[in-house]
Amino acid sequence: QGAQVAFGGMQQDTDAPVEVTADQLQVNQSDGTALYTGNVVIGQGEMRLAAPRVLVIYTEGQGRIDRLEASGGVTLVSGEEAAEAERADYSIDTGTVVMTGNVLLTQGNNALTSERMVVNLEDGTAEMTGRVRTVLNQGDDAAQQ
């Protein structure tokens, strides 16, 4: 069963420049794969995707980035929402982030967990699938982690 939630709250221009900063980048000279390691932060507009490792997958024509595969514990922050997962694949052209593996989405003091979540940055929505559970916090105590 899936749950449709708002994420990031506002539309984001997926044509805005994408900035990737990291401690280190390793490029394999023979096949050209590019692997960013060490505090990698991918930023576009309001969205920040942080992960220890990000692999860059280029499109065939080698002039465009097809997607960025972040792994090793990913945090996606957009507006006041934040989502965590083990992996996230961010494809820039379609503006979607597919997060898999123990996805935890916190909104204010509500938290949703699931196996998989597809965030659509363009219209600010997210769809969670796979054992979706909601943790509602009554009263104003902070969300227990």
Binding site: T14, D15, A16, P17, V18, E19, V20, T21, A22, D23, Q24, L25, Q26, V27, N28, Q29, S30, D31, Y36, G63, R64, I65, I92, D93
Partner: peptide
């Protein structure tokens, strides 16, 4: 750093001490 010997058989281009890429989807 361009290294070829120890890490793996392929030659690696290792960018260190802080790396920044700005990619513009409109004109890559």
């Amino acid at each position: 750093v361009i290294t070829g010997e120890e890490s793996s058989d392929d030659v690696q281009l290792l960018f260190t001490d802080g790396v920044k890429l700005v990619y513009d989807p409109k004109d890559p």
